[in-house]
């Protein structure tokens, strides 16, 4: 692109989810869909399914329902995780079936997984974890290696850096340059994004620059790390977004039943993923039940950034 106008390049960051997935996800990529129990980038996962991306290595601390659906849809070659379940409801049945059928996987503890992201994002060759970290996993996962502290001589377990090809995050707001503001549970979002070669952020709203600049401490990622901004209200449903909508516990419960039967999984994907052209249509069709997820208002006091 010959443009040297900064303004044009910034505007070019704003795109649809369909375009972002088309431009940034290649078959075979290592993909990290971020969000720990809060603000899980569900709409990105659905778009990856719609575009029938294949042979992805799907990495998340907690695969959650989104990876259960992506695995069911045939997107995954391999899974990397540290806790695989439907919170409070038992198994992720599609992933359980895939693992039993031999889906390749790599398993860590949460701290190990986060340390891998931090090593990836900061350029460290490895991150040292205390001896005993991960229990018996060290016997099964060749990525957990013993190292010696050169100062004290004590034993540590090293985990290698993780550098996803593409990281998807979902947050409350950003400006058009991709300065990302998030509140509530930040979880793995910043560490995952900072380790990604490309970062796609879906946002509940795109706000004017000065909204971000009046509260710069709330920015968890500077825009120069972010490659694409997608305005995607309800993009995290059925996971919650603080101040926007509550967790759709009924959707999680319902998935726990649906996912037991492969034909019902197919029906679900046909209706809610392949059968819609994007999140906006999904929201229109879900809207009667989304009303129940509305949250109240709880404002914090403004702070004074005044300077001389």
């Amino acid at each position: 692109m010959p443009s040297t106008q900064a303004g044009e390049i910034k505007v070019a960051k704003v795109m649809t989810m369909a375009e972002a997935v088309r431009r940034f996800v290649t078959d075979g990529d290592l993909v990290y869909v971020a969000g720990f129990s809060h603000a899980i980038a569900f709409s990105s996962g659905h778009e990856i399914i719609r575009q029938r991306k294949r042979n992805l290595t799907l990495c998340r601390a907690t695969p959650d329902v989104i990876y259960d659906q992506m695995v069911a849809a045939g997107c995954a070659r391999k899974l990397i995780f540290s806790w695989v379940g439907n919170p409070g409801l038992g198994n992720l049945h599609c992933i359980s079936r895939a693992l039993a059928d031999g889906l390749e996987f790599e398993e860590y503890s949460h701290f190990q997984m986060l340390a891998r992201l931090v090593a990836g994002g900061t350029g460290l060759p490895f991150y040292p974890m205390p001896d005993g970290s991960g229990g018996e996993l060290a016997r099964h996962n060749p990525n957990l290696k013993t190292v010696t502290d050169p100062f004290s001589g004590s034993k540590w377990i090293a985990v290698p850096p993780l550098r996803p090809d593409v990281v998807f995050i979902h947050v409350q707001r950003s400006d058009r340059k991709g300065n990302i503001q998030m509140w509530g549970v930040v979880g793995d979002v910043r560490d995952a994004a900072a380790s990604g070669r490309s970062v796609i952020a879906s946002v509940e709203s795109i706000v004017p620059d000065d909204v971000v600049r009046r509260d710069p401490n709330r920015t968890i990622l500077p825009g120069f790390l972010v490659d694409a901004i997608v305005r995607e209200p309800w993009g995290a449903h059925p996971s919650p977004v603080q101040g926007h909508y509550d967790r759709d516990n009924e959707a999680y419960r319902s998935w726990s039943t649906i996912s037991k039967e492969p034909n019902r999984v197919t029906e679900f994907l046909d209706e809610w993923v392949y059968g819609v052209d994007g999140r906006a249509e999904y929201v229109r069709r879900q809207s009667p039940r989304l009303n129940a997820l509305e949250v109240g208002t709880s404002l914090s006091e403004p702070v004074n950034y005044g300077s001389a």
């Binding site: 919170p87 409070g88 949460h110 340390a115 549970v185 979880g187 560490d191 967790r247």
Partner: peptide, 26 residues
């Protein structure tokens, strides 16, 4: 029901990243 429940966030003393929690505090 979930450890990231927005109801736990409202009124909390602090929210840190998972890495901060595991690295600094644990």
């Amino acid at each position: 029901l979930s450890i990231g429940d927005p109801a736990l966030v409202k009124g909390a003393a602090a929210i840190c990243s998972m890495f901060e929690l595991f690295a600094y505090y644990l």
